[in-house]
Design a binder for these strands. Sequence first.
RNA 1: GCGGGUAUGGCGGAAUUGGCAGACGCGCAAGAUUUAGGAUCUUGUGUUCAUUCGUGCAGGUUCGACCCCUGUUACCCGCACCA
Length: 800
Amino acid sequence: MKYNYSEIEKKWQDRWDAEGVFKATEDHSKPKFYGLVEFPYPSGAGMHVGHIKAYSGLEVISRKRRMQGYNVLFPIGFDAYGLPTENSAIKYNTHPRILTDRNIEKFTSQLKRVGFSFDWSRVVDTTEEGYYKWTQWIFRRMFDEGLVFRAKTLVNYCPHCKVVLSNEDSQGGKCDICHNDIVQKSKDVWYLRITEYADKLLQGLDKVDYLPNIKLQQENWIGRSEGAFANFAISGQDDFLRIYTTRPDTMFGVTFMVIAPEHPVIEKYRDSIANIAELDAYKEECAKKTEFERTQLVKDKTGVKIDGLSVINPANGKEIPVYISDYVMMGYGTGAIMAVPAHDERDYDFARKFGIDIIEVIRGGNIAEAAYTGDGEMVNSEFLDGITTKAEAIAKMIEFLSAKGIGERGVQFKMKDWAFNRQRYWGEPIPIVHCPKCGMVGVPYEELPLRLPDMENFVPGEGGESPLAKVESFVNCTCPKCGGAAKRETDTMPQWAGSSWYFLRYCDPHNTEAFASKEALDYWLPVDWYNGGMEHVTRHLIYSRFWHHFLYDIGEVPVDEPYAKRTAQGLILGPDGDKMSKSKGNVVDPNDVVNEYGADVLRVYILFMGDYSSAAPWNESSMKGCKRFLERVAGLTDLVKGTGETEAIASLFHKTVKKVTGDIEEMKFNTAIAAMMTLINAIYEHGSLTRDELGVFVRLLCPFAPHLCEEMWEMLGNKNLCAVAEWPTWDETKTVDSTVEIAVQICGKLKGTIRIAADADKDAAIAAAKADEKIAAQLEGKTLIKEIYVPGKIVNFVAR
RNA sequence: GCGGGUAUGGCGGAAUUGGCAGACGCGCAAGAUUUAGGAUCUUGUGUUCAUUCGUGCAGGUUCGACCCCUGUUACCCGCACCA
């Protein structure tokens, strides 16, 4: 048969659609499989081949599961709220709704051309009323449960996008959207109390099957640390400054204290601080620095001593000075630290610069040269002297603090609460009303969805207020509680809101009474296998686990962890080895590839190009090899003779079925395809195969190249679709050869090979090896010290 | 700075986890076919004339090391003054 991909692909895509083979139903007679891929953000640029790679992994697994008799849910949708669409809406003066619809249409046609087996009847669009109603609903529930709060704090702000960003969205001091530097700004913002779930998010990792590096990255992001809080009395006041430390054992080495420039104690004692003007100036200077500048100057510590404020070291009663410095952050711990220059590098640098005493309390280093952070015997520490283990010293010190009622054990997390609002138009309106009498009041559930008003000009205000603030009919409302005049919140939710629960909506996407029915959730959850990008591990993956844990706690979902298994694909790099990007002009459009080579070649190439989870550069000439492979597959129809098994290649068939079946489960798609290539080479060498064997081959390849395989399956006279044909099985006994070629070594060096019976015992194998002419010649005149035989592998003679 | 990872032919990458290194594919070379090119097919392809030598580098353990251990270099990713 000649391989005419353009004809075949259209034909089968239409057939799959018409027969609805990929539609999932709640069929309790079969085991279920819920495979999930990260739904795309429908940008104007369309998809690139990276999207195709991201979906191809679970596409193959889902197709295989269907053939193995599972009831499979493999859905897709669109995460359509967000800044890029809004920005291009402003640029082209077109409404984001129109752009979004256009982009979704484009993405849909691209996805369909690749032949993905998505259930197209369950598509969700996060910007649709029927969807965002439930995003708002979940937010409302969080508001009711006290997980939503508003606070005026220093936040990450992108001057370019004019939005407040969460900690997750400003990693490395760069805006996640436009990659410009972010600045710290004091602003009133909405927060979700994700830190309340920090321990649950951490512990939940123990019971899920995530790739180790994914788990580790989440653990680091959550950043749990154990230590102690301690109160340092302020001299001459009935007041104290509270610090957090992981090293209470070093408290006798404290020679000064540092507080963050924004620490409220400065305001409190403003009048008694002599150099307040100097402090104010320093504070202002810090606010101006970008995150980038701050990190560049890590070694060069700055700060100002507070003149008129000192504290007492609770361990030894000594009075110590207090400094402000921007190496202490208001957002972690208490915004104040006890400084132990002898045993902390940062404190050491600071003490050196400001000429502060450095007192050794742990022996083992040379504090004249550098801070010593290792373990050792405690010295200069009164009741701790002589202790040699850190744990014991810490325990003793905490005991001491507790007894005096000025300190206790404490836990801190690096993760911060989630800044949850954007001063932008294209997002879910936050369903809250500000009432002068009642304060913040949630929009009643029956009034949801709170619709995003239609407007012409949604350019964000210069002062950083939301465009919605300009829509009076939206802003002015009555208070749901007291009925008096009130104003609506005008900020919208961040782009991560809709994606935090979309996998739940897939279970029951058209439900108008609930975000999904209980029955549907009970049947489908948890997601059995979730694949996506590493870049979402400390964003979307954390956020959605948080929302899910919350929904579990209020009894809305049946399981606490949403994803049983999580894997990640590697990037596809440009042909030049750089990351694909529009500005570099090295982006490959899947449509071009489908036009020139066909969808099946694209799919096979993407999975064959290398290890699925590693980055690999695009290489067009390698794709030709995949094209040749599929052409040779198509050519198999001309070699068919008879039925049953062909003895010469039967064993290889069974081995290949076994190998491909196993490799797919481990996402080793490249070696699965290589095994099928090896098999086809052997078939061509043999010159023929049977009808039954071709049927096996076609089904084995079907998840990778479904269009071609459907066509061949039909040619073989099958009435059903290959997509739901039974996955081939293998006979274990036929994968074992009766004779094997094994290596013969002398002193670990390869000297030759012999062919022996697979079940040969040691004596027989050794005898066979010795009988070999070459080996015998090499052993001539040597004394055998040891003979080693590893069945099926090797014979090794140790001889002198 | 901390945490994690990687290093194998001209290239992408394999190696049953301690047992014949380089599967499979690309590229390249020669030949066949073709008026020619392209496409296709066949053969070859780590290195060395060969004995050899070969998995970033230097050691070690072992009958045997890409695989385990110690040290070292380079690159990649994540976090980053987290107290």
